[in-house]
């Protein structure tokens, strides 16, 4: 089974998200340290940068871990680095679909497709799809879901 992947722009989108949080944090760490002495300011800045670097590394691996495959009767979604998850959701079990795009995703022309079933636990979402691919997937899943709908 070959998995399709989110757009490479997802990683850039995540970097932008991290930067908007990380840069002010690093600057604030340096500023607070500067009240004490220059060395403390430098140390604070370096610690913040190291923390951001670690988060970025984890994020990068997580971005790479996402994958999805449209099979004959079900959608398979793979995710996670520390805890790896694979979810198989039959098209016929789909209750509704939603496509969302936050401000960051919109800036990079991306969207998240989320599949809802009657079970709360089945969490099938695919982030970072290019808008056109998200629309295609949404229409295809909706059509398949309607064709194979099954009662509770």
């Amino acid at each position: 089974m070959t998995y399709l992947r989110p757009s490479p722009r997802l990683w850039r989108c995540r970097q932008a998200q991290l930067a908007t949080v990380g840069i002010p944090t690093a600057v604030a760490a340096a500023a607070v340290g500067a009240l004490e002495s220059t060395q403390v300011a430098v140390a604070g800045f370096l610690v913040a940068v190291a923390a951001i670097g670690t988060v970025a590394a984890v994020m990068h691996r997580r971005v790479l871990a996402w994958g999805y495959a449209e099979r004959g009767d079900d959608l398979v979604v793979r995710r996670g680095v520390m805890v790896r998850r694979i979810a198989v959701v039959p098209y016929g079990r789909m209750q509704f679909l939603d496509v969302t795009a936050g401000p960051f995703e919109r800036a990079f022309g991306l969207a998240t497709v989320r599949l809802h079933t009657a079970a709360a636990a089945s969490d099938a979402r695919i982030p970072g799809l290019p808008a056109a691919e998200a629309a295609r997937l949404r229409d295809r899943l909706a059509a398949l879901g309607e064709a194979r709908a099954a009662g509770l």
């Binding site: 996670g80 694979i86 039959p90 079970a119 089945s122």
Partner: peptide, 24 residues
Amino acid sequence: QSIRLTQGPVQRRLDLVTLHVDTA
């Protein structure tokens, strides 16, 4: 409704997985 496979870090070391079968 859906079938899920999860594998945490400890499970990965021991080559184990957990299989969830969800209903409504």
